[in-house]
């Protein structure tokens, strides 16, 4: 056992990378749930985004094209959820579970020819002077663009929800869709946009795993990150910054346990592997004990009964 091999600076830098997929998926789902829709298909949309982004990158040679394709694929798959829940008025829980199962199967089919292929590397943002700073440099200024994009997305979501009229309307629809309808807001249209946004974010999160985090394609490689994103939204009490905190916690514990495994700590690997999921949920449960602020219309089916 050699704990001295663990470099704290590198640890924190890795943590941000490990947290990004779950962060992207969670912030998307947060917006969806704020609009009053519960989409349990995050895992399915993530893995679809993962293979779509991977395939597009391999075929085009450009990771940028891959990420755009991933967002598009996630949103496309969420269209299925839109049709089921917003038009056919199907149960959201069942539809979401179906979406996950469908996404897992679809991605396995799409990915058959890509197993073992290595994707082109995604470049890092290299800020000349800043990234050479000791400690701060590698932690804050030496990442790929998606890490910064994720943080920016959290900030943007927070600001939109809190300060803009669009955000207010979105929250209102999630709070009481009948009242919003009575005031003349297009409940279904607003929810569709939110679901598509959630799908795109989940797709980006998936592509981040297959293109940067792991870079390769294996079946079922999202390994439950989509479910963690769902839990994160609930335990973050639907607050964007708290979701960021939860994602970093998850990423942090993941990186630490990987390092501990590498250092040969005398804890069975299985326990270490389950620790990020366990610790994240325990901490967030404690954090969310203050008060539950779930959108009141969450998961309820809206029908404008005229």
């Amino acid at each position: 056992m050699d704990l001295s091999a663990i470099n704290p600076v590198q640890l924190i830098a890795f943590l941000m990378v490990a947290a990004t997929p779950v962060l992207l998926a969670a912030i998307g789902e947060l917006v969806v749930e704020k609009s009053g829709v519960l989409n349990l298909g995050v895992e399915g949309m993530m893995i679809t985004g993962a293979i779509a982004g991977f395939a597009a990158t391999v075929e085009s040679g450009s990771p940028a094209v891959g990420f755009v394709a991933a967002a598009f694929a996630g949103a496309l798959l969420s269209c299925l959820f839109v049709v089921l829940t917003q038009f056919a008025l199907a149960n959201q829980v069942a539809s979401g579970l179906a979406l996950t199962l469908f996404g897992l199967g679809l991605s396995a089919l799409m990915g058959q020819t890509y197993v073992g292929v290595k994707p082109p590397a995604t470049g890092k943002v290299d800020i000349p002077v800043l990234s050479d700073l000791p400690v701060v440099g590698p932690i804050l200024f030496n990442h790929d663009l998606m890490v910064y994009f994720g943080i920016a997305l959290v900030a943007a979501t927070w600001a939109v929800l809190k300060y803009t009229r669009a955000g207010l309307i979105l929250r209102a629809v999630g709070e009481n869709h009948d009242a919003a309808h009575a005031l003349g807001y297009k409940v279904v249209r607003i929810r569709i946009l939110a679901i598509l946004f959630g799908g795109a974010c989940a797709g980006l999160g998936g592509a981040y795993i297959s293109l940067i985090r792991v870079p390769q394609w294996t079946e079922g490689m999202t390994a439950g990150v989509g479910w963690i994103a769902l839990a994160l939204v609930v335990f973050a009490s639907w607050k964007p910054w708290r979701a960021l905190l939860g994602a970093y916690l998850f990423g942090g514990v993941t990186v630490v346990q990987l390092n501990l495994q590498a250092a040969g700590v005398a804890i069975p690997v299985e326990y270490l592997a389950m620790s990020p999921y366990l610790i994240t949920i325990v901490v967030l449960v404690i954090l969310s004990a203050d008060k539950s602020s779930a959108p009141a219309a969450l998961g309820r089916i809206f029908h404008a009964s005229r």
């Binding site: 207010l168 209102a172 009481n176 009242a179 005031l183 959108p295």
Partner: peptide
């Protein structure tokens, strides 16, 4: 003014009014 108030419980008074 509706019979069953079309208000949003989780929002404050000003936000509710802004929505209308």
């Amino acid at each position: 003014v509706f019979q069953h108030f079309s208000l949003f419980d989780a929002l404050n008074v000003a936000e509710n009014i802004a929505l209308g």
